[in-house]
Amino acid sequence: MWIIFALLATFFFGLRGILYQWTSQKNLNRDLLLFGVFFIGFIISILGVLLFNQHWYGWPDIAVGLGLGIGSFAANACLHKGFSVGKASLISVLSGLTPLLVLMFAFLLWKETLTGIQLLGFFIIFCGLCLIRYSSDISINNLKGAQWGLFAALFFAFNDLMGKQSTLLGADILATLTSMFGFGSMLFAISWLAKRKKNQLYDTSVEGT
């Protein structure tokens, strides 16, 4: 059953990447856009909490949800920024390093390992993915936005590890997602308001000169 959920996650993450690439080329406010994305997730999650009578069982559950919110905020902001300034193929390759980072940190934190066959399969798939993508027009001379792809991979890895921690705590999934989306929405709203105020101050100073 887990493979079905993994494939569905892959599909929806891919769809998200396509939409991020498309919207990054439009004249849209990134923070306001991502606030809308997270706020919709918050509404859906809290409705699920009420419908299925889920709960927060203590501060550890809430802390994990807030950690997920921080990771999601940072990862999505970096990913969208990367798509806006760099090549989609490059950013997708670098943000695709997340599984490798998760594998490394899971071993260090929880001593999780793969069997020899699983490790070989992971290595073949990962190398094949990189070879296919790097066979395009990516070169050392067009790495603009690479840092944003790497940051996105790092924060997505952090997010996956926090998700794993929530399962170890036995946290209710919809309650955790409510904390994640709610806190992420707040962070994007704060970022949007701060940049808006900064722009207003700048416009005022320009008009006064």
Results as ranks from 00 to 15, higher is better:
Trp110Val: 06
Ser205Glu: 15
Arg133Tyr: 09
Leu100Thr: 00
Ala77Pro: 00
Cys130Phe: 15
Lys195Val: 09
Asn76His: 02
Ile18His: 14
Gly121Lys: 02
Ser92Glu: 08
Asn199Glu: 14
Glu112Thr: 12
Gly14Ile: 05
Thr113Asp: 06
Ala152Gln: 00
Cys78Phe: 00
Leu154Ser: 07
Phe126Ile: 01
Gly182Tyr: 12
Ile138Ala: 04
Thr23Tyr: 11
Val37Gln: 04
Glu207Ser: 04
Leu201Arg: 15
Arg30Trp: 03
Ser135Gly: 03
Ser92Gly: 12
Gly41Trp: 09
Glu207Gly: 08
Leu101Val: 02
Thr113Glu: 08
Leu101Ser: 01
Tyr20Thr: 09
Leu94Ile: 08
Gly17Met: 04
Leu101Pro: 07
Ala6Ile: 13
Gly121His: 04
Val64Tyr: 06
Ile138Glu: 03
Asn27Ile: 08
Leu193Asp: 05
Phe107Trp: 15
Trp110Cys: 09
Leu169Ala: 10
Gly121Ser: 10
Val102Cys: 09
Leu19Gln: 12
Ile4Ala: 14
Val37Ile: 06
Val64Ala: 10
Gln165Pro: 02
Lys26Leu: 13
Ile18Gly: 13
Gly36Arg: 05
Ile43Arg: 06
Gly128Lys: 05
Asp31Met: 04
Ile138Met: 05
Leu120Ala: 15
Ser191Arg: 02
Gly48Trp: 04
Phe12Glu: 09
Met104Val: 03
Gly184Asn: 00
Leu19Pro: 09
Leu168Asn: 13
Ile132Met: 15
Phe12Thr: 05
Gly58Leu: 07
Gly163Ile: 04
Glu112Ile: 11
Leu79Tyr: 01
Leu193Cys: 11
Met1Asn: 10
Phe123Ile: 07
Ala152Tyr: 01
Ser185Gln: 07
Lys111Thr: 08
Phe155Ile: 00
Arg30Leu: 08
Gly69Lys: 03
Gly14Pro: 14
Phe151Glu: 00
Met104Gly: 05
Arg16Glu: 14
Leu68Phe: 02
Phe188Gly: 00
Asn159Phe: 06
Phe52Leu: 10
Asn27Trp: 04
Gln147Trp: 04
Asn199Phe: 06
Phe181Arg: 05
Phe12Lys: 14
Leu114Ile: 02
Gly67Thr: 05
Gly67Ser: 14
Asn29Lys: 08
Gly184Val: 00
Lys87Gln: 12
Glu207Phe: 04
Glu112Arg: 12
Lys164Ala: 12
Lys197Met: 05
Gly170Asp: 11
Leu193Pro: 04
Thr176Gln: 14
Leu8Tyr: 07
Gly65Met: 12
Arg16Thr: 07
Phe123Leu: 14
Ile190Phe: 14
Ser139Phe: 04
Phe35Tyr: 03
Phe38Tyr: 02
Thr23Val: 13
Thr178Gln: 15
Asn76Cys: 01
Leu103Asn: 02
Ser24Met: 03
Leu97Ala: 02
Ser139Asn: 12
Leu108Cys: 11
Asp172Pro: 06
Leu161Phe: 09
Gly65Ser: 13
Gln54Gly: 06
Gly145Val: 07
Cys78Gln: 00
Gly208Glu: 13
Phe83Gly: 09
Phe105Thr: 09
Leu32Thr: 03
Ala9Asn: 15
Gln21Thr: 11
Trp110Leu: 05
Phe5Glu: 10
Tyr202His: 14
Leu109Met: 13
